[in-house]
Write a protein that binds this DNA or RNA. Structure first.
Length: 562
RNA sequence: GCGCCUGUAACUCAGCUGGAUAGAGUGCUACCCUCCUAAGGUGGAAGUCGUAGGUUCAAAUCCUACCAGGCGCGCCA
């Protein structure tokens, strides 16, 4: 539909001797704030500057050059000050859009611009031996959604979970386990026990010992390697359960430890390329002239660091996947680290370094405005949030369906809880910190995941009660129908906007908006038994389809009944 | 001290590649189930868009300074 507007404008502008590419015109087009201002608007300010004429005048001229309206596609084309407003023939718009959505189904809004090129998306990346907290929840939810968005834009995402299974924190854990460890406790509740140990050993007095234990681990000390393996196995079991509950799948699950053997190669390569220098006993890449400080490669005791492993992993992934882009969905506090790593890769001569992107997210803060910290033992665990949300969902379901079977109850409550948590996170701009409020997560009213599920369930309910047909005639449209159609029309643009900024929140906000418009439509326009029954059923179906596509992008599941 | 991010209604947040009257949700308040699911809908009250300058025909949006919060700045990840 947008192309029609572009076509008309291009022709009119040509007559005024202004050459603009289709994409340029498309970029200038706006969707007016309300339906009575039309469906697309062309602002003339930009041309006013170029032609040194009054924008109002230009708008009038363009309107004149466009010529006849109405046509089959346009009901009217008006000027409003400096804008040329295009009013689609709403009946034909309604018919075209609904038909397109119903025939394209899950491909409506999909783009092929990605040409199946690979995009590596690293996300989640929890640390072994620590419980899955809300910190990693953000990366998991956002990263998953970003991978889905890339897929929808025609790329082939490679979902990568890069477990924090190596590093100095294992030195701490080893010291702690040797001092306070208890095999029985470990078997009974491994994560809880490991966290206890970690908190106990996270003290300055153990710093030296911890560093020694980590170095021993890196050098292959038998006892340490065995313990490390045990910790890892227990953790993986735990994480598998978490991902299953969340409905998250990865293409690859790797750990930092796998690059342990490649450390020497990397250091050798850096030396050969004359990037390494010794400083205060450690080996660094000096990035002062790039205003990025120093990137630490090797500690003074010879042990490696995070950056070293990230360099190795990036090079390895590029040789394996030859990716178009690599996205790291990691917290904002690691911004400098990634800038350094990407810079070092660039200095090493890897041209693809510019295709590595750190997609950062803000964190959950406590009500005091402070960050939660596992190190201080203060954290909010996913398990607790999930349980609390689920039990409230159960209560709500039972209120409506007192006789529901336990199995069905469990299933629905789970889907609702996941949607509440996912949506509650994704609706926020990822860059910002969020004040964590359990009440908000557990709330099912207003701008929430369950509201979206509810809207879908209502739509599905109509479908169940009426027989729809492929043939429909569009009668006069009510304002609520027009508003809904106008918004549904925007779905493809919304997806591409979300992709360009790698922001799932754009999809989330849009999903809420169409749900709200649907509920308004539902309230104002009876479907079954109305004169427009057949068209309205088709419109409901189009809404269901688009909201399904949105839910897919967000990683949440919908329910036919709730 | 330097760098990055943020500051919008009582609270939590959208809007930020400049554009037509600044939007939601929660809370408060008044209504709407003989009607396709009230987890809903309709109305009302509530805003110096942190402050002060600047750029522009046009600024919540861009620039500068300041104030406030978060994060980072060498052997953690």
């Amino acid at each position: 539909m947008k192309e029609l507007v572009v076509k008309l404008l291009k022709k009119a502008l040509k007559e005024k001797r202004i050459k603009l590419k289709d994409e340029e015109i498309e970029k200038l087009l706006e969707v007016p704030p309300t339906a009575d201002m039309g469906d697309y608007a062309f602002p003339c300010f930009f041309l006013a500057e170029r032609l040194k004429e009054e924008p109002k005048q230009i708008a009038l001229e363009i309107r004149e050059k466009i010529g006849n309206a109405p046509t089959t596609d346009f009901e009217d084309i008006q000027t409003a000050g400096p804008y040329v407003n295009f009013f689609f023939n709403r009946k034909s718009l309604a018919k075209k859009l609904v038909w397109e959505v119903i025939t394209k189904k899950k491909d409506f809004g999909r783009s092929k611009i990605g040409e199946k090129k690979k995009i590596v998306v690293e996300f989640s990346a929890p640390n072994i031996a620590k419980p899955f907290g809300i910190g990693h929840l953000r990366s998991t939810i956002i990263g998953n959604s970003i991978a889905n968005i890339c897929e929808f834009q025609g790329f082939k995402p490679i979902r990568l979970n890069y477990l924090g299974d190596w590093g100095a924190q294992f030195g701490r854990l080893l010291v702690g386990y040797k001092k306070f460890g208890d095999e029985k406790k470990l078997q009974k509740n491994p994560i809880k026990h490991l966290l206890e140990i970690y908190v106990k050993s996270n003290k300055k007095s153990f710093d030296k010992q911890s560093a020694e234990e980590f170095k021993k681990l890196e050098d292959g000390d038998k006892e340490n390697v065995m313990l490390w393996r045990t910790f890892k196995e227990y953790s993986l079991e735990e994480f598998d359960k978490v991902y299953k509950e969340l409905g998250i799948k990865f293409d690859k699950q790797l750990g930092e430890s796998m690059y342990n053997k490649k450390m020497k190669e990397i250091i050798k390569e850096l030396k050969e390329k004359k990037l390494l220098e010794k400083s205060e006993g450690a080996q660094i890449v000096n990035l002062k002239e790039h205003n990025l400080g120093a990137c630490l490669i090797e500690k003074s005791d010879g042990a490696t660091l995070y950056a070293t492993r990230d360099l190795a992993s990036a090079i390895d992934r590029h040789s394996k996947y030859n990716f178009e882009k690599m996205i790291y969905e990691v917290g904002q506090e690691q911004k400098l680290h990634f800038k350094q790593v990407f810079k070092v890769l660039e200095l090493m001569g890897y041209k693809w370094a510019k295709n590595c992107i750190h997609v950062e997210h803000g964190h959950y803060l406590g009500k005091d405005g402070k960050k939660f910290s596992t190190r201080k033992g203060k954290s909010v665990f996913l398990k607790d949030i999930l349980n609390e949300t689920k039990s409230l969902a159960k209560k709500e379901i039972k209120k409506r369906l007192p006789k529901i079977k336990e199995k069905e109850l469990e299933k629905r409550a789970h889907k609702i809880a996941i949607a509440a948590i996912f949506y509650g996170d994704l609706k926020n701009n990822r860059k910002n910190n969020i004040v964590f409020d359990i009440k908000k997560f557990v709330s099912f009213e207003g701008d929430t995941g369950p509201y979206i599920q509810y809207s879908y369930a209502r739509a599905s309910s109509i479908q169940r009660k009426a027989e729809s047909s492929e043939k429909f005639k569009v009668n006069n449209l009510d304002p609520q129908e027009i508003e809904l159609i106008r918004k549904l029309l925007q779905f493809p643009d919304v997806v591409s906007k979300a992709y360009n900024s790698l922001s799932p929140s754009i999809i989330a906000n849009y999903t809420y908006k169409i749900s709200k418009l649907f509920n308004e439509f539902y309230h104002a326009c009876p479907v079954i038994g109305s004169e427009s029954e057949m068209f309205r059923l088709a419109l409901v179906e189009a809404f269901r389809q688009i909201i399904k596509n949105c839910a897919y992008l967000l990683g949440i599941e919908l329910l036919e009944k709730m």
